[in-house]
Nucleic acid binder design. Structure first.
Lengths: 349, 349
DNA sequence: CTGAAAGCGCTTACAG
DNA sequence: CTGAAAGCGCTTACAG
């Protein structure tokens, strides 16, 4: 027995700063291997003898060992975390995207750090700054617009990023979404097909995607020679059913000849349908109405709402799959995935 | 110069496992104090000379220093994290609760780990197990029901816990919510006041709270001598607008004399209102309808929906405040806070 | 009020 | 295929 140099932990471990939880060292000891072998076994690293692997796994199970993510992150310089940032959690749309992301990432042992930036670039920047400190493996972001500081932060991090909801065509950019312009144009063509002549765009919460939809819509109307700028009604206010009702009232009062309306989302359209019912304005007889996103309730309104169905589960699922590939340094066949959209024609148009 | 024993970091730091990000040591060096003083200054620990504090803060700002949460968590044996678990993110209700929680906790430098367990006790248990590994400061949970294993895990963690949505009266239990029974009873009394005699309860997603509402409702009807078990219609299926429409159809077909319905949530009621319109059944003339939660859209339906307004922002805000107090070892005047509820009478009843 | 030492629980990088 | 050593970037516990 050496007298000096007693480096190993003292016999009674329940001292000082220990948490009482079993550690890798405990698992290693109880399965008769070194901590590093235990670590490799638990991480599923192929080079470990399968026999040892099962011994280690068993020991871990009996001890109720769960890896300490902080220690792992500190030692490996990255966490097992993916950051997912959305502009709003109040929008069912993004909940479904996040849900799909979870379904792909959780089984891989990754955790998802959710951030809601309330459509504020400043909040988004703050979230990025804070979450980057966690050394995530990658980020799933909404759209392409963000503050310069945020972009600089992201670039400096050199982390994989997949941008959701919109499409782009730049080298080194990864995204999963659909053409918002094309969707807007599809709505315009549908209303034109219905013989509508005085067609309005009603929008709130004017984010990049809402503007793109409007653009596609406008161009299609211009192409048909039926675009009237006076029939574009936009407010930066938060979108809601109440706002939809109010905007519809105002629009129809000022422009009684309007015979078709594209709402930038379903919430606004719901409000308009309710308000029309109250005013005795018949939909679609006098006015056709079309929403966007096709939320679950839209199929059940009276009249049932025509809408663009967006494939948010697909978006979340494929974006998560992309980030997984990027983490594993796999080649992506297609850096930007177009999941498309679907015009669901119902009674309101 | 000593020859052996060169323990200090080599001059050029950009070696090996470093991440390139500024560390506390960098901040300390650049402000001429020791790392531990820098740490204390940044954490706002009172014992540090105010002059040094500002020097350290400045240095941190210039360097763009952000604390490494993994290192902090490892050294201090806990993270700056609060776990918040809800049974569903698809329910706007819980989004609003989480929103309020964020508003209280984020400014305190805490992070919120959100977990959605899809109404599954197994998933909840798994989330608790995984999140506990992060050494959170406390947990915000929904209701009181969970698996025994989950309860054991929580008890062993000795962490502060606040349970949301329901009320309890046990020592050592902290909660913020309202009496689901009382809310159910209030609906029953309202329908009785309206002169209704054949009153039904329609419920889906039969969690503890839905059952409690039903209980309070049932007792009030029994008390009035007007309870008919045949008019209780329950399905474990996920609640949705579509399910609400279907359940209403079935109920009214089998019991054409029903003249009042309490839906366990607004979604079901919305579906019923739409379906009634389609079948030409007049609401409230032939049947009164009452929902639960008072979602935003309920005020805009035709007819506008009578509902119980639940104070979810209050619940989130006060639960977060409670957990903060518990973390700081402050005494709570009131371990269980009743935020109440409000019957919002509109056109549908 | 400030600091030197030790340690949190892992994984990396290097050997063998 | 396995392991001893060192280190990740902080904070705790102890001194002074």
């Amino acid at each position: 027995m050496s007298t000096g140099n007693h480096k190993k932990p003292s016999p009674q471990r329940e001292v000082s700063r220990r948490t009482g939880r079993p550690t890798l060292a405990d698992v290693a000891e109880s399965s008769g291997v070194s901590p590093i072998t235990a670590s490799r076994a638990l991480r599923g690293i192929a080079t470990v003898d399968p026999h040892l692997v099962s011994k280690v796994r068993e020991a871990a199970a009996t001890l109720g060992y769960v890896v300490n993510p902080a220690a792992r992150a500190l030692a490996s310089a990255h966490s097992q975390t993916i950051v997912a940032l959305v502009p709003s959690l109040s929008n069912q749309l993004f909940i479904e995207v996040l849900e799909a992301i979870h379904e792909v990432l959780l089984p891989q042992g990754l955790e998802v750090l959710i951030g809601d930036y309330h459509y504020s670039p400043d909040e988004e920047e703050k979230l990025i700054r804070n979450y980057l400190a966690h050394r995530p493996r990658g980020l799933l972001l909404t759209g392409f617009e963000r503050s310069e500081a945020a972009q600089a932060l992201l670039a400096a991090s050199r982390l994989p990023i997949v941008q959701m909801m919109e499409l782009a065509n730049a080298p080194g950019v990864f995204c999963v979404g659909f053409s918002q312009q094309a969707a807007g144009a599809a709505v315009a063509r549908h209303l034109l097909d219905r013989g509508r002549k005085r067609i309005a765009y009603v929008a709130a919460q004017l984010d990049a995607r809402v503007m793109q939809r409007g653009e596609g819509f406008r161009h299609a109307l211009q192409h048909a020679g039926l675009h009237d700028p006076a029939l574009e009604m936009m407010t930066p206010a938060r979108s809601s059913v109440a706002v939809g009702g109010d905007m519809f009232s105002e629009l129809i009062t000022n422009n009684p000849d309007v015979d078709g309306i594209f709402f930038c989302n379903d919430d606004l359209a719901h409000g308009a349908i309710f308000e029309a019912a109250r005013q005795g304005i018949r939909v679609p007889q006098r006015i056709s109405m079309v929403g966007f996103n096709d939320l679950p309730i839209s199929a059940h309104m009276t009249p049932r709402l025509t809408s663009i169905r967006t494939l948010r589960a697909d978006i979340g699922q494929r974006a998560a799959t992309q980030i997984l590939s990027l983490i594993k340094h796999e080649k992506l066949e297609n850096p930007c995935v177009d999941v498309g959209f679907e015009l669901i024609v119902r009674e309101s148009s």
